[in-house]
């Protein structure tokens, strides 16, 4: 059962600033199947947050400007929906969890009201029923003593608990799509593991599709079925998680994977990607990764590569894929299962 619930077609989005136009998203196409988890990975400033915020229409325009592209949700073109029309979708059809649970909750409102707000807005339901739903949801996300929690203020919760509240707010109206923008970046590892597991459980229970934005490849490996790797406002490689990790075809993906130390690594020097990401005021001509790429060829600095289709929906935008280019084996990760006995685990 593989049905596209959300599709983005050739999206271009820019910000007009005093210094000029920042081309944050430069032609992105991706889709999300029902019930799957898609991860968007990339470094800061590569446009991953802007992409999903554009879908939710959360970027103020101006300074933001949708230049071209299409956003299709459940077969309907929502590209030019007004804010009023979007309000009907937000919360009930698609919702979002933000990175920083400290700043994205309203500090002057009790948790309960922040959760019921969405229900009352979207559904014709009595306040008492809404309260009951909210308390159920709080219990579901693992807040001990939900009746008490309902009456509390955000500052009375810890970071992990606040993120649970955020998830409760996002999922209380049972949306089809959940965007999680760096949901665990501000959290500790053990809390991160709890939150990721919670998102996964709720996803299965409520049959939600999830788009998770992160820069942590470990989080990707743990959660996602499909991955899109972004660089400088474009998707450079997309495919099944296993293909991306073990058989990357784009030098940037391969470089990212290599720059993380692996468990059994002996050599002290990590393979790093040289240089820094380009300035999106004036993106370079040709492939935007070319200045940092160790396999850079003449053509790379001249023209942007086309997307090449490989098996299992694996797509790459790189000149190395061209039949005329020299064949290169790009290093990926090796699974621990094939090389080592797994870590002894308890608890």
């Amino acid at each position: 059962m593989s049905r596209k619930i959300l599709e983005i077609k050739d999206l271009h989005f820019s910000f007009d600033t005093y210094a000029g136009e920042v081309q944050a998203v430069r032609g992105i196409s991706l889709y999300l199947n029902k019930g799957e988890t898609l991860a968007i990975v990339g470094e800061s400033g590569c446009g991953k947050s802007v992409t999903v915020q554009t879908v939710m229409k959360l970027v103020p325009t101006p300074p933001g400007r949708l230049k071209s592209g299409k956003i299709i949700y459940c077969g309907e073109d929502i590209t030019h929906y007004s804010q009023k029309e979007m309000q009907k979708l937000r919360g009930s059809e698609m919702s979002m969890i933000f990175q920083d649970p400290m700043t994205s909750l309203n500090p002057t409102m009790r948790i309960g009201r922040q959760i019921t707000e969405g229900i009352l807005k979207h559904e014709n339901i009595s306040p008492d029923k809404a309260k009951q739903r909210a308390i159920e949801m709080l219990a579901k996300v693992g807040i001990a003593n939900p009746e008490k929690g309902f009456k509390r203020y955000p500052h009375q919760f810890s970071g992990g608990m606040r993120q649970r509240v955020m998830i409760a707010i996002a999922l209380v109206c049972n949306p089809n799509v959940l965007f999680a923008d760096e949901p665990t970046t501000a959290l500790d590892v053990t809390t991160q593991a709890q939150i990721l597991e919670l998102i996964n459980e709720l996803k299965q229970e409520l049959e939600t599709s999830v788009v998770i934005i992160t820069h942590d490849l470990g989080v990707v490996a743990r959660t996602a079925e499909r991955v899109a790797v972004m660089y400088a406002g474009k998707i450079v490689e997309t495919g099944l998680s296993r293909d991306i990790f073990y058989k990357p075809k784009h030098p940037y993906t391969s470089g990212l994977l290599e720059s993380m130390p692996s468990a059994g690594q002996v050599e002290k020097t990590l393979t790093s990607i040289k240089g820094t990401p380009p300035d999106l005021f004036a993106p370079p001509k040709g492939c935007s990764f070319a200045p940092r790429c160790k396999y850079c060829m003449n053509i790379c600095t001249q023209t942007d590569p086309d997307e090449v289709q490989l098996e299992n929906g694996h797509k790459v935008s790189c000149w190395l894929m061209n039949p005329q280019a020299e064949k290169r084996e790009l290093p990926g990760r090796k699974s621990r299962l094939s090389t080592q006995k797994p870590l002894k685990e308890g608890i």
Binding site: V220, S241, R333, S335
Partner: peptide, 19 residues
């Protein structure tokens, strides 16, 4: 056990044992 590793097969197989 909580720290995720960049290794999907391993992540799938490891027991989800949370603190």
């Amino acid at each position: 056990a909580a720290a995720p590793e960049a290794d999907p097969d391993f992540e799938q197989s490891r027991a989800k044992t949370l603190m």
